[in-house]
């Protein structure tokens, strides 16, 4: 097994081989947060365990890519991080997931509060059937923001961060369904950012989009990683190599055993000099 010894002892101080992004100005004063530690995480649907023994760190303010063949449990693992698995009946999560040291599965944690800190963008753009403004305002309003000027400011900032502001600033009252697929997906990113999350989970956010929209999403991710921790699932190796700092490769070797984490490491290293032969086969397209 390739699981490095360092990962057995999961602590916040173990930064993997990653360097925290250098932060300048006022921002450097604020506490850098939004890092996950997963310890021996397993997930079962009913009595079928689909993932087992996942140990990894998700460093703050960096992009972590989850890769692996279809059905290996990438989406399932992602949903452990904002407890969206709770919404599916009959799911059991084992092991420990901590966000900045807080065990997010302990009784006192309300998933509703957790999800304000850990946002998610889905595979298919899923804007609400309402105006662009109301879509982005949904999260802040849920958090109790009512003042018009305050909302306006949050919405402008979120749309700017999602690189959509210039395209929609003059028709914020327009129905969200009138936007193109790529714009809708950036709207969904803005909607998630408006709750000011520390982490953004993205499950194949560009797989339903054309190449230009995909490029725009990737550019957006590059801009965002100074503000939030990003965990992204992707089937696209080039994309993982281009946008991520850390990559985790998951594999389910046969249907009668759960998937596990084969290798996790700095993206550049993993793609050029993987530790494991299976990682090499996968990234060179020999299976999956």
């Amino acid at each position: 097994m390739v699981m490095s010894a360092a990962l057995e002892e999961v602590t916040m101080e173990a930064p993997l081989r990653l360097v925290e992004p250098v932060r300048i100005g006022a921002a450097s004063a604020e506490k850098v947060s939004g890092s996950f530690a997963l310890k021996d995480v397993s997930v079962a649907y009913g009595n079928e365990t689909v993932i087992a023994g996942v140990n990894m760190l998700v460093p703050s303010r960096a992009v972590t890519a989850l890769i692996g063949p279809s059905g290996c449990g990438k989406s399932t693992l992602l949903r452990c991080l904002n407890r969206m698995n709770d919404e599916i009946g009959n799911v059991r999560v084992g092991g420990a997931v901590t966000l900045d040291g807080l065990d997010i599965y302990q009784k006192s944690v309300d998933p509703v509060d957790l999800r304000m800190r850990v946002g998610q963008v889905f595979q298919r753009p899923n804007p609400f059937p309402m105006s662009i403004y109301d879509n982005v305002a949904f999260g802040p309003r849920t958090q109790g923001v009512r003042k018009r000027e305050e909302l306006d400011a949050i919405i402008e900032a979120a749309l700017r961060d999602a690189a959509l502001w210039d395209e929609v600033k003059n028709h914020l009252k327009k129905h969200a369904f009138e936007l193109s697929g790529g714009q809708q997906q950036r709207l969904c990113i803005a909607r998630a950012l408006a709750t000011k999350p520390e982490v953004l989970l993205m499950d194949e956010p560009a797989s339903a989009l054309d190449p230009i929209s995909t490029q725009q999403i990737e550019d957006t991710i590059a801009e965002l990683k100074d503000m939030v921790t990003i965990v992204i699932v992707t089937h696209n190796m080039q994309q993982a190599a281009r946008i991520s700092d850390q990559t985790a490769f998951m594999l389910r070797e046969s249907m009668d055993q759960p998937a596990h984490l084969v290798e996790v490491g700095e993206t550049k290293r993993l793609f050029t000099n993987p530790d494991d032969k299976r990682t090499e086969s996968y990234i060179t397209g020999r299976f999956g």
Partner: peptide
């Protein structure tokens, strides 16, 4: 109503009732 919308609302930190009341019922 597509379950996407439900998921989106919950993932934003809405309670179930808020997701129902603000998103699903109007739709």
């Amino acid at each position: 109503i597509p379950s996407d919308l439900r998921q989106a609302a919950l993932a934003l930190g809405a309670t179930r009732w808020r997701a129902i009341y603000k998103v699903i019922l109007p739709a």
